[in-house]
Simulated scan of single mutants.
Amino acid sequence: MKTERAQQIYESKDTIAVHLEGKPVWIENVDEGNGMATVQVESNPLNTMTVSIDRLQEGKGYDA
């Protein structure tokens, strides 16, 4: 995913599916300068991680 798209998803009022290695994530913050995003993995607010934005995928993930 590109940094600009991650920022658009983060700012969107719509729910847009984003996956990290096939797991659904929720983007909590985008650091455009460093190309990193803080994400919540699945629906667990205690499971957050900071990852490179290029590791994120929009859509259904690897289930298709």
Score class of each variant (00 low, 15 high):
residue 11 E to G: 03
residue 38 T to Q: 09
residue 17 A to K: 11
residue 16 I to F: 01
residue 38 T to C: 07
residue 22 G to A: 06
residue 21 E to I: 06
residue 33 G to T: 15
residue 4 E to N: 14
residue 6 A to K: 00
residue 20 L to P: 08
residue 38 T to V: 07
residue 17 A to D: 11
residue 27 I to P: 03
residue 32 E to P: 04
residue 15 T to C: 10
residue 17 A to S: 15
residue 34 N to Q: 12
residue 6 A to D: 02
residue 18 V to R: 05
residue 18 V to Q: 00
residue 35 G to L: 01
residue 9 I to G: 02
residue 4 E to M: 11
residue 30 V to Y: 09
residue 13 K to T: 13
residue 7 Q to E: 13
residue 23 K to T: 09
residue 18 V to Y: 08
residue 13 K to H: 14
residue 25 V to W: 00
residue 34 N to W: 10
residue 17 A to F: 01
residue 38 T to G: 03
residue 14 D to Y: 04
residue 31 D to T: 06
residue 39 V to T: 08
residue 20 L to G: 05
residue 5 R to I: 10
residue 22 G to W: 12
residue 38 T to H: 05
residue 4 E to Y: 13
residue 26 W to H: 11
residue 12 S to M: 09
residue 15 T to G: 07
residue 20 L to H: 10
residue 24 P to V: 04
residue 21 E to Y: 15
residue 7 Q to G: 00
residue 19 H to I: 03
residue 38 T to W: 01
residue 14 D to S: 09
residue 37 A to S: 12
residue 11 E to Y: 11
residue 10 Y to T: 02
residue 10 Y to A: 01
residue 20 L to N: 08
residue 15 T to V: 15
residue 11 E to K: 11
residue 33 G to M: 13
residue 10 Y to D: 00
residue 5 R to C: 01
residue 26 W to Y: 12
residue 4 E to T: 14
residue 39 V to P: 00
residue 14 D to V: 04
residue 30 V to E: 08
residue 11 E to P: 01
residue 12 S to D: 08
residue 8 Q to W: 13
residue 6 A to T: 05
residue 34 N to D: 08
residue 26 W to E: 10
residue 32 E to G: 00
residue 22 G to K: 10
residue 35 G to P: 07
residue 36 M to L: 15
residue 24 P to Y: 07
residue 26 W to D: 00
residue 16 I to C: 05
residue 33 G to C: 11
residue 16 I to A: 06
residue 30 V to T: 09
residue 37 A to W: 02
residue 34 N to V: 11
residue 35 G to F: 07
residue 12 S to F: 02
residue 10 Y to E: 00
residue 27 I to C: 07
residue 6 A to P: 00
residue 28 E to H: 04
residue 35 G to C: 10
residue 35 G to W: 03
residue 34 N to K: 14
residue 26 W to K: 08
residue 7 Q to I: 08
residue 27 I to N: 08
residue 35 G to V: 03
residue 32 E to F: 02
residue 27 I to A: 02
residue 31 D to F: 14
residue 38 T to K: 14
residue 7 Q to A: 11
residue 39 V to K: 04
residue 29 N to I: 06
residue 18 V to W: 11
residue 28 E to R: 09
residue 15 T to S: 15
residue 14 D to I: 00
residue 36 M to G: 05
residue 28 E to Y: 03
residue 31 D to E: 12
residue 39 V to S: 04
residue 12 S to T: 10
residue 38 T to A: 09
residue 25 V to K: 02
residue 18 V to E: 04
residue 5 R to Q: 10
residue 37 A to F: 05
residue 10 Y to M: 03
residue 19 H to L: 10
residue 21 E to T: 04
